[in-house]
Structures are given as C-alpha cells and as structure tokens.
C-alpha cells in the first residue's frame, strides 16, 4: 500500500517535471505557430485593410482567388516545379549515392565538396547562378551562342518566365541533391553484402542486381525522401524568389498578392489555407498509397 502510493507520487512528480520542462517551448510554439494558423483561417474570411479594420466578407476571398486565372497558373507552375525538382533530385541523388558507395581515391575530399551546395546560404549562391545565365557576361550564353551555336543570339534567360522555371528547377536539384544522396548512401551501406554474393552465384548481371536487390532495399528511404522533398518544395519561397522572382509558384504568388500593390492580406490568407489543404491532402494520399502505413 505504502509502496504503491510512493510510486504514484513518483509518477506524478515526473509528470509535473515533464510538463514544466516542455512548457516554455510549448507556449512559444502555441503562440507563434498554432495560434497563427487559426488566426490565418480567421483572416481568410475578412477584407483586411492597412488601417487594421477588418470586415467580414464570408467566402468572397476564396471566390476571388478561385476565379482568378492567375491563381490556376500559379498552381500549374507549382505542380511543374514540385514534380520536376522532386524527380530530378531523387534520381540524381540516387546516382550520386551509387557512385559514392564505391571506393576510389580522394573520396573524402569529394564528399566534402559535394556538401557545399547544400550548406551554403541561398543568398550567397543565387548571384553566382544569376551571373552564369547573365545575357551579357554569362558563361551559359557564351557557351550556347558563341561556342555551340544552339541559339542565334544572346537573350535574358532568367528574364523569360517560361525558361526561368527550368533554371529554378536545376538550381533546386543542385542545392538539394547532397541531402538525398547522403540519406540514400547511409541506407546503401547497410545492405547485407551476402545478398549480392548470392546474386553473383546465381549469375545475375549488374542491372538485375540493382533492380532486384538495391532498389527494394532503398524503397522506403527514397519514399520518405520524396515525401519530404514534396512538402519542402511545395512551400519553397527563397530559392525561387531570389533567383527568378518572375516564376510565380503559389508561395511567390501569395507573397506578391499580400505584400505588394493593394496588399490583399485577406486573399493572401485564403491562399495560404488553400495551399495548406492541398499539401495535407497530398500527404495523406501519399502516406497511404506509397508508404502503405
């Protein structure tokens, strides 16, 4: 009897301590993440003005957004961006992981160098990329116009939205492949070597070893990376805006809508809600179908 009471006390004490330790962090997250999410939904039903007066307008913001062809263009642009960056990053990351899984001289140095795109601040690398595609001095135009003759004259590639999106996609692959390759590599190194030896005995070639051993083994890692990549790239702002602000994916579109011109924050809020709902919908679908949880 005495003993159980003591244990209860101990559990209670642990509970109090647990809540006490998490409280400061939880409070801040509650006030600055959870509350804003709700506040954002609230704002999306109001016409907000700069003076701070909000008037309730029901679903009008959503109507305005959904009937705007610009919005659908932004959705389409986002879709292209997310699909191509995710597929590109994953495929390239897988190739690099397979290469880096082999022993070769200077591998340590190569590993360090490959980390650079991932760790360098975005702001410090976008200008180098802008320069490469600069119409006057850039290397890309020099290569494609003077050396290879693919284009007949120099033009501003990043200034053309339809071309700029491909630059942002390649930029994103460049920036994020190190993460993907590291994650896949650490899984590759955990594969049982006996599997490959057994395959050798059965006379399997390189491709079938890759297809029937490597690929199934990395399936779930790749699956999770794809999910993370989609979530992150769907909300991506800086990597696109700083390199080519004419590529209007949803986040850039929202940014312009809410903070430039007439500053339609109410519509901006409804855009954020729509973006969030799309994302959650995708996550639920993906987790059920691909990761089969």
């Amino acid at each position: 009897m005495n003993n159980t009471r003591k244990q209860l006390d101990r559990a209670q004490r642990e509970s109090i301590l647990g809540w006490g330790l998490i409280l400061p962090a939880a409070t801040i997250i509650g006030l600055l993440v959870l509350y804003p999410i709700i506040y954002n939904i609230y704002l999306s039903f109001f016409d907000t003005s700069l003076s701070g007066n909000n008037t309730f307008i029901g679903l009008r913001n959503y109507e305005n957004v959904l009937f705007d062809p610009e919005f659908w263009k932004a959705v389409w642009t986002t879709l292209i961006y997310v699909v191509f960056t995710t597929v590109g990053t994953t495929v390239f990351g897988l190739i690099v992981a397979l290469v880096m899984n082999k022993e070769f001289p200077l591998r340590g140095l190569v590993r360090s160098l490959l980390l650079l795109p991932y760790v360098a601040p975005v702001i410090s690398v976008v200008f180098a990329w802008k320069f490469i595609f600069d119409p006057v001095n850039g290397l890309f135009m020099d290569l494609t116009v003077e050396k290879l003759g693919i284009f007949t004259e120099r033009f501003n590639l990043i200034g053309t939205p339809s071309a700029a999106i491909w630059v942002t996609i390649i930029f994103s692959i460049w920036r994020n492949f190190p993460f993907t390759y590291l994650m896949i590599l650490s899984r590759l190194q955990a594969i049982d070597k006996n599997l490959y030896e057994a395959a050798d005995i059965d006379g399997c070639g390189g491709w079938s070893k890759f297809r029937f051993i490597t690929l199934p083994e990395v399936y779930f890692v790749v699956g999770s990376i794809v999910l993370l990549r989609v979530i992150w790239n769907f909300n991506k702002f800086e990597d696109i805006f700083l390199l080519a602000d004419n590529v209007e994916v949803l986040s850039v579109y929202t940014y312009f809508k809410a903070f430039t011109g007439s500053m339609e924050m109410g519509q901006g809020s409804s855009l954020a809600v729509i973006q969030f709902v799309l994302l959650i919908g995708f996550i639920i679908y993906y987790v059920k179908k691909v990761l089969k949880w």
Binding site: L43, N235, L250, S251, T254, Y255, S269, Q275, F276
Partner: peptide
C-alpha cells in the same frame, strides 16, 4: 509549417 504559410498572420 513555416515560411509562407505563417507569414501573413
């Protein structure tokens, strides 16, 4: 969460 989704609120 983060970035653009919480910017306005």
């Amino acid at each position: 969460f983060g970035g653009i989704l919480l910017l306005i609120p």
